[in-house]
């Protein structure tokens, strides 16, 4: 039991609960099923992307191209709508095409990081420029709205099961699936292993390059799914709609306890991180805090979280290096 309280995820949960209870007092609306569902549904895209980013950060890399990749897939979806018949099959096909398009872009990042050994920040900065530029060029920055969407897709996005929107199920499937990969498959354990100690992983025969390739490809794959979620949620495709979202995603992952030093991070932690950011945003709206102050609070929380994490990391390192001194 003691170890549970020591876990980083636990302290994030405590903060989430603390803020929630404050908000419950501030606004009676906060703790209503409707508000909470809205809040979660509004963060499905960030959640899916953050789950992919968790794997990358565990291997102590970073991907700043996620928002651009997601937008690119969303734009592709809007073009696909022109070719696909208006039927349920098309929605299913979308779930095949979109992740594959994302996967290809992710593979490109992954190849450059793993085989060409260019630092991930530089690679993804480059692909961010390329992809975002191409998207703007092709779309001319034009917004596609729901009038051109097939009816089947619109009804898909309005599905509710047991009163819960379909997108929340989508997030849940991605979360459980990724958790399973991370916890129960060889490749998932390899992700944690190379994050923990790269040299050791090479020595025990883990194909380090393949794992790197996997995390970036998987990120692309999830970006494809996130693009469907984004399109379904906003019922529009906006080429400029997600600029800068990658930073929110990274912030959520870091808040959730993953560490850029590698080896640490979990799906439930990341989900808590997403939730924490979401609740703060929601709470500030409910508490009628001037929207312009919201970034100040979010930024301050990120800075405090990473500083706190670093301080406790240093402490734990200090404790490790002890000699048994005679009394």
């Amino acid at each position: 039991m003691k170890s549970l309280f020591k876990q980083k995820e636990f302290s994030i949960l405590a903060i989430v609960l603390l803020i929630s209870s404050i908000l419950t007092f501030v606004s009676p609306v906060f703790l209503t099923v409707g508000n909470l569902l809205d809040l979660i549904e509004g963060n499905v895209v960030i959640g899916i992307l953050a789950i992919g980013m968790t794997l990358i950060i565990i291997t102590s890399d970073i991907d700043v191209s996620v928002a651009a990749v997601t937008t690119a897939v969303a734009v592709s979806i809007s073009y696909l709508f022109g070719f696909l018949p208006d039927s349920w099959i098309s929605v299913l096909l979308l779930f095949l095409f979109a992740p594959v398009i994302g996967l290809v872009m992710g593979l490109f990042n992954g190849l450059l990081v793993s085989k060409i050994e260019i630092p991930a920040i530089v690679v993804t900065l480059g692909t961010l420029n390329i992809i975002a530029g191409l998207v703007l060029y092709i779309t001319n920055g034009n917004y596609v709205n729901s009038t051109s969407f097939p009816q089947s897709f619109l009804s898909f996005s309005n599905i509710e099961i047991l009163g819960i929107p379909i997108l929340i199920y989508l997030l849940a499937i991605v979360a459980v699936g990724t958790w399973f990969i991370l916890k129960h498959t060889l490749i998932g354990r390899s992700v944690l292993a190379i994050g923990g100690n790269t040299q050791s992983s090479v020595r025990v025969g883990i194909n380090y390059q393949r794992v790197k390739l996997f995390v970036f490809a998987y990120m692309g794959f999830l970006a494809g799914i996130a693009a469907i979620a984004q399109t379904a949620y906003t019922k529009a495709v906006d080429p400029n709609g997600m600029i800068g979202l990658e930073l929110t995603v990274i912030a959520a992952v870091v808040l959730g306890g993953a560490n850029i030093h590698g080896g640490r991070g979990s799906i439930h932690g990341t989900l808590l991180g997403v939730l924490l950011l979401a609740i703060m945003q929601n709470g500030m709206i409910l508490a009628r805090i001037d929207t312009y102050w919201q970034n100040v609070v979010t930024g301050a929380i990120i800075v405090i979280a990473v500083s706190y994490d670093q301080i406790s990391y240093k402490r734990s390192q200090d404790k490790l290096a002890n000699i048994e001194v005679e009394a």
């Binding site: 498959t185 060889l186 490749i187 354990r189 390899s190 944690l192 292993a193 994050g195 923990g196 100690n197 040299q199 050791s200 992983s201 020595r203 025990v204 025969g205 883990i206 194909n207 393949r210 996997f214 080896g263 640490r264």
Partner: peptide, 23 residues
């Protein structure tokens, strides 16, 4: 050649599956 972030059990076992299918 250990992994500080993994359990003792996994550290002992790791590598046995190397070369097997990723999934």
């Amino acid at each position: 050649s250990l992994f500080p972030n993994l359990s003792v059990a996994e550290n002992i076992y790791i590598g046995r599956d190397s070369g097997k299918k990723a999934w």
